[in-house]
């Protein structure tokens, strides 16, 4: 009697143990599947970028060498990329892009902060309309404004000037700024401002000590997104810039190599690396902020 009970208990134990084992194995299988998928995605996203960097450091003679790691390493390609003798003014193009993108970002933020504050915090008629205009503007095709602007800037002798490159950029960076900031501002704990006032802060103090520190990360993230958008612009810059005001994207697209009729792959990859590494570092440092900023305006 007692033996049979004992046996029954053991069998039940064993069975539950097996069930647990199956569950555990299944969970482990699910998690390894997740890891495999994640690894595939990471490789797919990084491999072309890695290939660009490897090629950037490779001697020209080994341009098409398929060895998957750093071999025949040289800095020559970077020298070519910055070689004024070959007409590759990469440093000038980078300064141009830096200047154009910075001014665009500053102007967009200057206007965007106020509009976003109103859209996020104030109650007024026509809010939907304004939001609609801003969103519509952000998806506006660049080619639709480039023709009249080209003619206008030709007429007033502005082609190739910095303002001719900054003004069209504002058309897509400002809407981006407004809707990203709007959704950030909507998330902010504005009641703290009131609390600070009740605790005896002046309006100015409340703004400086409470609102500014709270809003700064949102404004900073938006600035990064705006800067990247302006830095990456190609269409307008390719039409409205000249040799002196060429941006990096245009410079890389028109790169000249050692031999005139040969595509200078390694030098282009070196230039691409120089232009991209700062952005990638920026993205890796502020990864979380950028993701929230990217999705803030679109999906809520």
């Amino acid at each position: 009697m007692s033996t049979s009970t004992a046996t029954a208990t053991t069998t039940a134990d064993a069975r539950s143990a097996t069930a647990k084992g199956v569950a555990r194995r299944r969970a482990r299988w699910a998690s390894s599947r997740t890891y495999i998928s994640a690894a595939v995605i990471v490789i797919w996203c990084l491999l072309p970028f890695y290939w660009m960097v490897v090629t950037a450091f490779r001697e020209v003679g080994y341009t098409f060498d398929p060895t998957p790691f750093f071999t025949h390493v040289t800095w020559d390609n970077f020298a070519t990329a910055f070689s004024a003798d070959r007409g590759n003014h990469l440093e000038r193009a980078m300064l141009n892009s830096l200047f154009i993108s910075s001014v665009t970002t500053a102007v967009a933020l200057l206007f965007g902060v106020f509009a976003a504050y109103a859209l996020a915090r104030l109650n007024f008629r026509g809010k939907f309309l304004v939001l609609g205009i801003v969103l519509g503007a952000s998806m506006f095709p660049g080619v639709a404004i480039v023709t009249p602007l080209f003619q206008l800037f030709t007429d007033i002798n502005w082609t190739g000037t910095y303002q001719a490159l900054i003004i069209p950029n504002i058309s897509f960076v400002l809407p981006l700024t407004v809707y990203t900031l709007t959704s950030f501002f909507r998330e902010m704990p504005w009641e703290l401002e009131e609390a600070a006032r009740i605790d005896g802060c002046t309006a100015g103090q409340a703004f400086r000590k409470v609102i500014m520190p709270l809003a700064a990360p949102a404004v900073f993230t938006t600035a990064i997104l705006a800067f990247i958008a302006a830095w990456n612009e190609y269409l307008i810059a390719s039409i409205l810039s000249n040799d002196a005001t060429q941006t990096v994207t245009v410079a890389i697209a028109n790169f000249a190599g050692a031999q005139p009729h040969q595509e200078p792959y390694t030098a282009v990859m070196a230039a691409g690396t120089v232009v991209t590494i700062p952005l990638v570092v920026l993205v890796l440092i502020f990864q979380r902020k950028i993701v929230s900023g990217l999705t803030a305006g679109a999906v809520k």
């Binding site: 072309p48 970028f49 660009m52 994207t249 232009v275 991209t276 952005l279 993205v283 890796l284």
Partner: peptide, 10 residues
């Protein structure tokens, strides 16, 4: 985020 950050021209 890496492919997203790289300029389309590059």
């Amino acid at each position: 985020l890496v492919p997203w950050a790289i300029p389309t021209a590059v």
